[in-house]
Design a protein around this nucleic acid. Structure first.
Length: 895
DNA sequence: GAGCTCACGC
DNA sequence: GACGTACGTGAGCTCG
């Protein structure tokens, strides 16, 4: 590590792939190089008879220039057809030039097409030659502090050495370059760089048909210029020329000499409207590049491109500048946008590094205090914060009392919306996927396994390269995602739902849920007693001790030692699942003991021990992670601990909810959407019966029962209603007759009749289910009400199992995903409403169709109303949304 | 450490 | 005729 006291912020001017302290531009004379390339390889033709030698040579040159110079900016200048300003001055200008050969002319569009594919900027401008554009661009770049490299085959460009450009002239074809400095110009021409135009004014140039002074060649010109410095001086004091013959020539041709100088002078002030940003090197879409190279049959270039992609990925070294924090704050304020990534230590309490990308420039801060000084930019509503997994960053900032106004763009979320089926969204993997470039691998930097280093233990340079690469990758990736989201019609969902949610989730996690440790310990004691008791009973009945938790050992006891009939098998042996045990319950008293054991063991291990392990013991709270990029349908997930699967069904398990309590002086307010998925089904299918049922607040399961069983609603029994409820669930999940028969314990035939009756009663639902499969086959994905997408690649699979599974996904995802859309909208509305009203109440948990708030007692009435209103009006559907609410001191009581 | 089974929620 | 309810997290065991 570098000693902190030396600096606050490391500023790195970082160009893609590698470092460079200074911005660097390469400017190429496209016409000059393609000409040379064409004459070097004029015979190259592809299978369609198209000549490609010129384009090939130019592009090859450009690819090797990017490797060789590793510039941040690049530009290729071209001449345009038609007369130029020089022709206005001198009609015979370039009069001896033959036109471009047809075989080369036809390659110009190819070369330009390839440059576009490679995302190399090019310029051309009516009335001006490539030279003038190069001159103008060079001057501007130099004024802005760039290192300028001009590459051409034309020695006219040597005059640009005088303004400070590095001019590289091709040697022998185009394979070698020679860099000219003032000294080398002197060696070769015998004049200084700033005399090159004077030199040409005297000696002329036959290729451009610049006359100069007839009879004055390079040697004489150099000699004269050594004495007189410029053409103007020579003309005004030609009497001083010693040689009589030359004196006469100068006198006769002085006007022509002045004109020639003018013609040879490259313009530095072409009226072009541009900023240097236009020439920043962008990462090309490699699919497009590969496609173009294939199309023109340039297999050499294709291979070179693929090879270069594989290497120029790692940042080898960076140079850095030490800057005060105030500078980055100023830069951000000026730029109004920045990318950020915070590197936290294991505990999340301290920052080990922070990286920023502002206007293509990378800053690294190692001193945690730098962040505190930056607080004003975080809470400025006019500054756009972007990053990758911003929720993590926000959590750090919240912990350190730094407020954040809003998050603008999170690549982590964008990657999720673009493909919610991915297993993980690690930056390096996503970056590779979208750019085919590798970041310095985590493994290379930190090692792996037990020897894995902490961030702060990696040596300074390596870690700087790592951090700089990551933030730069984030910046690049987010640019790519902008257009990808638009192209997939996901921008509204991204901006309107997912991005606002990032901050809300961070706040919920930060707030956490208060836990009553006395309750936890109380239940823990009870469970320990029960488990010891049951264990003893099981061992007595089995006649030996064994591990009840091991399905394998349990299988041996039940099916071999006790001789019970094995109902079902798994890949690894006997199944001892709940269903199986249920079927055996009457056959042996050990079964019910084992079933009880399982109930209590689950509660103990998952909900007591598991909870204790992740508790913040200092203030008795749990801070779950609400993950936004996990589920394939758009739901949130909850981890460490999972608060979305706290027991509720069994009375004893339900007591776990007593652990989760309101803060002092507060009450928990729990609101859940009633039948949200069925309501969404009613909306999506447009089914009249369903819609009417919900509009009239009828008992939907009772209605389904009366339809399915063909009886009057008043005659529906409790059993029939609960069966109908199962049918309704089954429909949402895309269940078949077998599944329904299993879950209801009825015959398959009976189940089939139920489903048939269901679809007869709700014909639009059947139509919807059928339609969604068709649409999925056509588009390859399904979507929710807010246009959230999920790809379903197996919808056309030959394999029955794969295909049926895909069909179930296609039927379920629009329903489950739309419900997720709705509650996300509701969360945003609720959070905004609470903030606008300045209320202290806080959202603390979401469980798919349920929101839990911690409400100060004096706000209870207001917040109840606010919550219900905002949830019920979150979205406009063909059916009303209904919210049920309850309150309590603990989650158990709030039911 | 990966993969399996089991159990909890919606 | 197949195969056999969506979406998750976590614990514990077993194997390598």
């Amino acid at each position: 590590m570098f000693p902190k006291t030396f600096y606050d912020i490391i500023a790195i001017e970082y160009s893609e792939g590698r470092k460079s302290l200074k911005q660097k531009i390469v400017i190429v004379d496209g016409n000059s190089l393609i000409n040379r390339a064409y004459f070097a390889m004029s015979e190259l033709k592809n299978s369609k008879g198209v000549y490609t030698g010129g384009a090939y040579g130019l592009i090859k040159m450009i690819m090797s220039l990017t490797e060789q110079f590793n510039p941040s900016h690049f530009c290729v200048a071209f001449d345009m057809k038609g007369p130029t300003k020089r022709h206005e001055a001198y009609a015979e200008y370039k009069g001896t030039r033959k036109g471009m050969p047809e075989e080369l002319a036809m390659q110009m569009p190819i070369a330009k097409d390839l440059l576009d594919a490679l995302k190399i900027s090019r310029i051309e401008f009516q009335g001006y030659e490539a030279d003038d554009l190069i001159g103008t661009l060079s001057k501007r770049a130099l004024d802005e502090g760039f290192e300028v490299n001009v590459v051409t085959g034309d020695k006219d460009a040597l005059q640009l050495v005088a303004i400070g450009a590095r001019v590289h002239i091709t040697k022998k074809g185009i394979s070698e370059l020679k860099l000219y400095t003032d000294d080398t110009v002197m060696e070769e021409l015998g004049v200084h760089a700033d005399q090159v135009i004077d030199f040409k004014g005297l000696s002329g140039d036959s290729s451009d048909n610049i006359p100069g002074i007839p009879g004055v060649g390079p040697k004489t010109a150099a000699k004269l210029l050594t004495q007189f410095k410029t053409v103007e001086n020579l003309v005004s004091s030609f009497e001083s020329v010693e040689n009589k013959r030359i004196r006469g020539l100068v006198e006769t041709y002085k006007e022509q000499a002045l004109l020639s100088k003018k013609l040879a002078t490259i313009m530095l002030e072409v009226p072009l409207d541009f900023t240097m940003d236009a020439f920043v090197i962008e990462t090309p879409d490699s699919d497009v590049v590969v496609d173009r190279f294939r199309y023109y049959e340039l297999s050499n270039l294709l291979q070179k491109y693929i090879a270069s992609e594989d290497q120029h990925t790692e940042v080898k070294e960076i140079e850095y500048d030490l800057k005060p924090v105030s500078e980055i704050v100023e830069t951000i304020k000026k730029n109004k946008a920045f990318d950020m990534k915070l590197y936290q230590d294991k505990t999340g309490d301290a920052l080990v590094c922070a990286s920023f990308c502002v206007n293509n420039k990378v800053f690294l801060a190692q001193d945690p205090n730098a962040i505190n000084e930056m607080a004003p930019v975080f809470k400025d509503k006019n500054i756009a914060i972007s990053g990758y997994d911003l929720k993590r960053d926000l959590l750090y900032l919240f912990k350190h009392d730094i407020d954040v106004d809003h998050c603008h763009f999170d690549g982590y979320i964008a990657a999720y919306l673009l493909d919610p089926s991915r297993r993980n969204y690690d930056l390096s993997e996503v970056y590779y996927e979208y750019t085919t470039q590798n970041l310095p691998s985590e493994e290379a930097v930190f090692g792996k396994g037990a020897k894995k280093k902490n961030f702060e233990d990696v040596d300074g340079k390596t870690i700087h390269v790592y951090a700089a690469s990551e933030i730069f990758a984030i910046h690049k990736l987010n640019e790519t995602f902008q257009s990808k989201l638009k192209a997939s019609d996901l921008m509204d969902l991204f901006e309107g739902v997912e991005m606002p949610l990032v901050k809300i989730l961070a706040e919920m996690e930060y707030t956490g849920f208060k836990v009553d440790m006395d309750q936890v310990n109380h239940i823990d004691g009870q469970l320990n007693e029960k488990l010891t008791e049951i264990e003893k009973a099981v061992y007595d009945l089995a006649g030996e001790t064994f591990n009840i938790n091991s399905p394998k050992q349990l299988g041996v006891i039940l099916f071999e030692k006790l001789g019970l009939p094995p109902v079902k098998k798994t890949k690894t042996g006997y199944s001892t699942s709940h269903d199986v045990l249920e079927k055996l319950a009457s056959k042996h008293p050990i079964i019910s003991e084992i079933m009880d054991y399982r109930i209590y063991a689950k509660l103990k291990s998952t909900y007591i021990d598991g909870l204790k392990a992740v508790m913040d013991l200092e203030n008795s709270r749990v801070h779950t992670s609400l993950n936004q990029t996990v589920t394939m349908t758009g739901r949130l997930s909850s981890t460490e601990p999972n608060l979305q699967n706290i027991p509720i069904r069994l009375p004893y398990g339900r007591k776990i909810r007593r652990f989760f309590v309101a803060d002092e002086g507060c009450t928990l307010l729990d609101a859940d959407y009633s039948q949200i998925e069925l309501r969404i089904l009613a909306h999506l299918s447009g089914d009249k019966v369903l819609i009417e049922a919900f509009r009239n607040e009828l008992d939907i399961h009772a209605i389904t029962a009366s339809q399915v069983f063909g009886i009057d609603q008043s005659e529906v029994t409790g059993l029939q209603r609960s069966r109908a409820k199962e049918v309704n669930f089954g429909i949402i999940y895309g269940m078949g007759d077998y599944g329904l028969s299993e879950s209801l314990g009825i015959s398959r035939k009976e189940a089939k009749t139920y489903i048939e009756n269901y679809f007869k009663s709700y014909p639009s639902v059947e139509g919807f289910m059928h339609g969604i499969i068709e649409k999925c086959k056509e588009k390859g994905y399904v979507e929710t009400i807010l246009k959230r997408r999920r790809a379903v690649p197996d919808i056309d699979a030959k394999n029955f199992m794969l295909r049926s599974s895909a069909e179930r996904i296609a039927r379920n995802t629009p329903i489950q995903g739309s419900a997720a859309d709705v509650i996300k909208l509701a969360m945003i509305r609720v959070a905004n409403a609470l903030q606008e009203k300045g209320l202290k109440s806080k959202l603390i948990l979401q469980v798919h169709d349920e929101l839990i708030l911690n409400v100060p007692n004096n706000e209870l009435e207001d917040v109840k109303q606010l919550l219900k209103e905002n949830m019920e009006s979150a979205i406009d559907l063909k059916v009303p949304l209904k919210v049920d609410m309850s309150i309590g001191a603990s989650w158990y009581d709030a039911k």
